[in-house]
């Protein structure tokens, strides 16, 4: 059963919070991973690896660079589930 965008956001926020120590509530749609959340490329790859497992999706490397904001990632993963 595919998760809704809201559920994916909640799950992704949990992963980001664990990885960075940020409050999950700060992980909102318009935030940029690099500029707003200060996530470096190694942390981004960790988040992607954990998200792939959590949402049972595969995110090719060439798509990761397009995931600029949290909303981009949520939309991508919600769609990729189906």
């Amino acid at each position: 059963m595919a998760l809704s965008e809201k559920e994916v956001l909640a799950g992704l926020a949990e992963i980001v919070a664990e990885e960075t120590g940020l409050d999950a509530a700060e992980v909102t749609g318009p935030k940029s991973f690099t500029d707003d959340l200060d996530i470096d490329s190694l942390s981004m790859m960790t988040i992607v690896t954990l998200a792939e497992e959590k949402f049972s999706v595969r995110i090719p490397d060439e798509d990761v660079k397009n995931l600029v904001t949290v909303a981009d990632a949520v939309a991508y993963m919600t769609k990729a589930q189906s």
Binding site: L42, M45, T46, T49, L50, E52, E53, R58
Partner: peptide, 13 residues
């Protein structure tokens, strides 16, 4: 258990 794609990027550091 899960394959190479699940090995985390922080493993080497």
């Amino acid at each position: 258990e899960k394959g190479a794609s699940r090995v985390l990027p922080m493993t080497v550091p």
